[in-house]
């Protein structure tokens, strides 16, 4: 039995397919969802999503959002941003990471909200770099 899997952001449907297993980063740690998983709503963390389909593996990077697992083996991820590994531009992500890190050094200048937002941005870029590099290695 397969899982109906879908990743959606506000801009587009990033990925949808029938797959065998999905590994998702949540705030409580990584979870792997197989068919007939119990209905669950969990909070997503920046990181990589691993999709297994017919022995093949696919990587995606996501930032915050949430995941809804429905009763009928349907998994819907609503993410702020999501990218497939092959779409990631590592150089740009790396540059973005460096920029954010640079800014974070002067953290006294920001209020809590901006700081938290930048921290989230940094995590997102790190996840992108991680997934992008992994993908290159796999190839």
């Amino acid at each position: 039995m397969k899982i109906k899997f879908k990743i959606i952001t506000l801009e587009r449907v990033v990925y949808q397919d029938e797959v065998d297993a999905v590994t998702i980063p949540t705030t409580d740690g990584e979870i792997t969802v197989l068919a007939r998983h119990t209905p669950l709503v969990a909070i997503l963390k920046s990181g990589r999503i691993m999709v297994k389909k017919d022995g093949a593996q696919l990587l995606l990077s996501v930032s915050s959002g949430f995941v809804e697992i429905r009763q009928d083996s349907e998994v819907v991820i609503l993410a702020d941003t999501a990218e497939r590994a092959e779409e990631i531009d590592i150089e740009r992500a790396d540059e973005a990471r460096r920029r954010v890190e640079e800014m974070l050094k002067e953290k006294d200048k920001f209020d809590d909200l901006t700081f938290a937002r930048m921290q989230a941005q940094l995590e997102k870029e790190l996840a992108r770099i991680h997934v992008g590099k992994k993908y290159r290695k796999l190839r």
Binding site: T26, T27, D28, T38, P39, L40, V41, A42, I43, F66, E68, R70, Q71
Partner: peptide, 25 residues
């Protein structure tokens, strides 16, 4: 509109944490 769900959801890490995030978003 998706069909009725009969079984209720489990929330991780907790009901409050999920709702606090999900509902405003």
């Amino acid at each position: 509109v998706s069909p009725e769900v009969t079984r209720l959801y489990q929330f991780e890490p907790s009901d409050e944490a999920v709702l606090d995030l999900v509902v405003p978003i």
